Simulated assay, not measured.
Amino acid sequence: MSDKYGVGHDSYCCPDSTVLRNKLDIRDDITLSEAERQLSAIAADNVEFNPPPYSLAYLQNIHRALFSDLYEWAGELRTVGISKQTTRFCQPEYMEKEAGKIFKTMAAANWFEGMERADLIIAVAEAYSDLNVVHPFREGNGRTQRILFEHLIMNAGFEVSWWGIEEDEWIYANIAAYNCNLGPMEQVFEKCIGQPIQP
């Protein structure tokens, strides 16, 4: 038996189970997913915007803020290999190096400041897709990464909202990007990135 990441029993799971160990001692996936959704949604309201520079450590702090009520390992980089269907995420020993390259590239682009909306959509889609392949946490990567990209996009001077994106659309865009087709991810950010923020 394996979980959604293709991992069987590992040190993150309850004994003889694929359910992640958690502070509420929840032992079934459906209840845990709902608790995770509710607690992270409440916690997300308390994650404050900060301007760049951004880094893997910044991403870890977001994860810790979102999931520390539920997981002891919130904010810690995962130590096991994970995949979703045919998507194999970065191995733990390479995550810091690969994430470092992505943040360095964004820093060299001045965190996308001053870009026109059309250029921002392309740049954000590529950076988001690259970081998604790193997938540094055992669980909660998508929610954590979206907050980071909210900060990036707002810092670049644009409104952002995820409400118009269906889960299937996200999954399809991520799989396509993993296979070097950024078109669907650009379409996602075309919907998400709004108007310039008025001073």
Rank of each mutant, 00 (worst) to 15 (best):
D3K: 08
K4R: 13
Y5R: 08
V7T: 02
C13S: 09
C14E: 15
D16S: 12
D16R: 10
S17V: 03
T18L: 03
V19F: 07
L20F: 09
L20T: 02
R21Q: 02
R21H: 02
N22K: 12
K23H: 04
K23V: 05
L24A: 15
L24W: 06
I26K: 12
R27C: 13
D28W: 06
D28M: 03
D28I: 07
I30L: 14
T31N: 13
L32C: 07
S33E: 15
S33G: 11
E36W: 05
R37E: 14
Q38S: 14
L39I: 12
L39T: 04
L39W: 04
A41N: 10
A43H: 07
A44N: 04
A44M: 04
A44S: 15
D45S: 12
P51A: 15
P51N: 05
P51I: 03
P52S: 11
Y54A: 00
Y54S: 00
L56Y: 09
A57I: 11
Q60P: 06
N61P: 05
N61R: 13
N61G: 12
H63F: 06
R64K: 14
R64E: 14
A65S: 13
F67M: 04
D69E: 10
D69R: 06
D69N: 13
E72W: 06
A74G: 10
L77N: 03
V80G: 14
G81S: 08
G81A: 08
I82C: 04
K84E: 13
K84D: 09
Q85M: 13
Q85C: 11
T86G: 13
T87C: 11
T87M: 14
R88W: 07
R88H: 12
E93N: 12
E96H: 09
E98G: 09
A99L: 05
G100F: 08
G100Y: 02
G100V: 10
I102V: 06
K104D: 14
G114E: 01
G114V: 04
R117P: 05
A118G: 11
V124M: 06
A125I: 02
A125P: 01
A127D: 03
Y128R: 13
L131G: 07
V133F: 11
V133N: 11
V134H: 04
P136V: 12
P136E: 10
F137C: 02
R138S: 00
G140E: 13
G140I: 11
N141I: 02
N141W: 05
G142T: 04
R143E: 08
R146G: 05
E150K: 01
L152I: 11
L152R: 07
L152P: 07
I153F: 08
N155Q: 07
N155P: 03
F158I: 02
E159G: 11
V160Y: 01
S161H: 05
W162Q: 01
G164S: 12
I165P: 05
E167G: 09
E169I: 00
W170Q: 03
W170S: 10
Y172S: 15
A173E: 02
I175G: 08
A176E: 11
Y178Q: 06
N179K: 12
C180M: 12
N181W: 00
G183T: 12
P184N: 04
M185H: 12
V188F: 00
F189S: 08
E190Q: 13
K191M: 15
G194R: 03
G194D: 03
I197V: 05
Q198L: 15
P199E: 15
P199G: 09
